[in-house]
């Protein structure tokens, strides 16, 4: 039903996603949407096994997780943080708008963990698609994705859950 309401190119892309159906969302879709719809937003995204509803995580919780102070979920599963490289626009936007930390400050914290051995820094992956897959396939994983405006998010999430057995939780509702 949503497809009919959308402008044709967007509906075509959304149709493709449904066809792909494996939760693999081409990075190009976000930019196309960004041009034609209200700006996409960033959503924190966790693997279902974490048992956490990311909507309930406070700013303090998110900072503790992404700074790798907090290491385990409430169900004792280790937290595994996945991010994009420092210079990626999505990573920068996530740091500034969600964590409200300058990316270089976060990098300093991670480098301190790495080179003093005091924690396992986030795993850096090469693309938004890899990030999405890593989170979907790794128990305890958390990261972030570019989510679309509300009407689309609902559609995607519905299909995502339909097609991906290990469905991630915490999409923007």
């Amino acid at each position: 039903m949503y497809l009919k309401l959308l402008p044709r190119p967007t509906a075509r892309i959304l149709g493709k996603i449904i066809l792909i159906g494996a939760g693999v969302i081409s990075p190009i879709t976000s930019s196309v949407w960004a041009e034609q719809s209200p700006a996409p937003t960033i959503t924190v995204f966790a693997n279902a096994s974490s048992g956490v509803n990311v909507d309930e995580l406070t700013l303090g919780n998110l900072r503790a997780i992404f700074s790798v102070r907090k290491r385990s979920w409430d169900n004792d599963l280790p937290i595994k943080v996945f991010v994009l490289a420092d210079q990626e626009p999505l990573h920068q936007k996530f740091c500034k708008t969600i964590l409200k930390i300058y990316p270089y400050v976060l990098r300093e914290q991670w480098d301190r963990l790495t080179f003093s051995g005091t924690g396992i820094p986030p795993t850096v992956v090469g693309s938004e698609e890899q990030l999405r897959q890593a989170i979907a396939n790794t128990p305890g994983a958390i990261g972030y994705v570019m989510s679309q405006p509300k009407i689309l998010v609902n559609s995607i999430d519905t299909h995502y859950r339909l097609f991906v057995s290990n469905s991630p939780v915490g999409g923007e509702e």
Partner: peptide, 30 residues
């Protein structure tokens, strides 16, 4: 470890936290 705090131990050879830079002082990047 709980919601807002944590406590732990490290045993072995550890870097000393002293000032902002001591624990990674040999790394050009830090």
């Amino acid at each position: 470890e709980n919601e807002l705090s944590g406590l732990g131990f490290r045993l072995g050879r550890v870097r000393n936290s002293f000032g902002f830079y001591n624990d990674t002082r040999d790394v050009l990047f830090t």
